[in-house]
């Protein structure tokens, strides 16, 4: 195995090209190292991107919060801008593994490993993020649904493409986001369920809602029925309840020997959805928590 430390984006692309697709980009590596050892993933060359200064930046640029792909979950959740604009993202980042994992793992990695219940990726998914990808052909942006190819499979080929940053549009005053996690243990455990939501509320009514849930399918699954139904609905306990029920229409959870049966997950998903919506209403002072 070769281990290359890149100092610039250009150098990453150069290394990837040289390796002819047999390399893999390495950021935190908290999953990749174990996956390579178990044979789940293959890489002859690892390209370490954590020393590229521009990939470490977290900054506000033209109405977006930009998070460099090599910024660690700890750096993100402690960042004042993140905490100011997206407390739910900070919360999601803080529930991945443990603080020891968060100290090296990245948000980009949390998305690219494509585990359906990845907490940080879930919290991010409703914020309308744009992933900035660079490869030989140039730079492009893509959205959440273009990132997930399957269970634990990303559309991004880490042997050819580098994610440089994640851009998140800054919220308006009447918008807020939330993240709910149903967990057997706060640390060192995947959630039984997680739900993320973002909404705009005007005059006590939902203008729009983005609602995603996991692990109920491939990646962060959109609760499309609930989202559509919620538009224009009054912010109330009744509304949350109906939305919770509708969320089930898009959810197909599996049974896990540890983290809940299909039945249990179906029973509690509506509860998590309700709580996620209530959290938003509370943040926007529309309701009391």
């Amino acid at each position: 195995m070769k281990y290359l430390i890149a100092n610039s984006t250009a150098e990453v692309l150069e290394f990837l090209k040289e390796a002819g697709g047999t390399a893999s980009i390495l950021a935190g590596g908290t999953d990749l190292i174990l996956d390579i050892e178990s044979g789940k993933k293959k890489a002859d060359t690892l390209v370490d991107v954590t020393r590229i200064p521009e990939l470490k930046k977290i900054e506000e640029v033209d109405g977006f919060l930009e998070i460099g792909a090599a910024a660690t979950l700890t750096e993100i959740q402690k960042n004042p801008l993140v905490r100011k604009y997206f407390p739910s993202l900070a919360k999601g980042c803080k529930t991945v593994g443990s603080s020891l994992i968060q100290n090296v793992a990245t948000l980009a990695g949390n998305v690219i490993t494509a585990q359906p219940a990845a907490d940080a990726g879930m919290a991010l998914s409703v914020l309308d993020p744009r992933f900035v990808l660079v490869d030989e052909e140039g730079t492009r942006e893509c959205g959440v649904d273009e990132m997930y190819a399957g269970f634990g499979v990303s559309t991004l080929d880490s042997g050819r493409t580098l994610m440089t940053k994640i851009k998140i549009p800054l919220p308006n005053k009447n918008e807020a986001a939330s993240f709910q996690r149903l967990e057997l243990r706060k640390s060192l455990s995947l959630p039984m369920l997680n739900v993320a939501a973002m909404a705009s509320i005007k005059d006590g009514k939902f203008e729009w809602v983005r609602l995603r849930m996991a692990p109920v399918g491939k990646g962060p699954v959109r609760a499309a029925e609930a989202e559509e139904w919620l538009v224009g609905k009054e912010v109330s306990a009744e509304t949350f309840k109906k939305a919770g029920e509708l969320a089930l229409e898009n959810a197909n959870p599996r049974s896990n020997p540890l983290r809940g049966s299909k039945e249990y997950r179906e029973s509690t998903l509506p509860v998590m959805v309700r709580r996620a919506l209530l959290e938003i209403a509370t943040q926007l002072n529309v309701m009391e928590g």
């Binding site: 281990y3 590596g29 690892l46 954590t50 090296v104």
Partner: peptide, 13 residues
């Protein structure tokens, strides 16, 4: 300055 898990860290880090 940061606490890290040396067991899942490639030595070259």
């Amino acid at each position: 300055g940061t606490a890290v898990l040396s067991c899942i860290m490639p030595v070259m880090k």
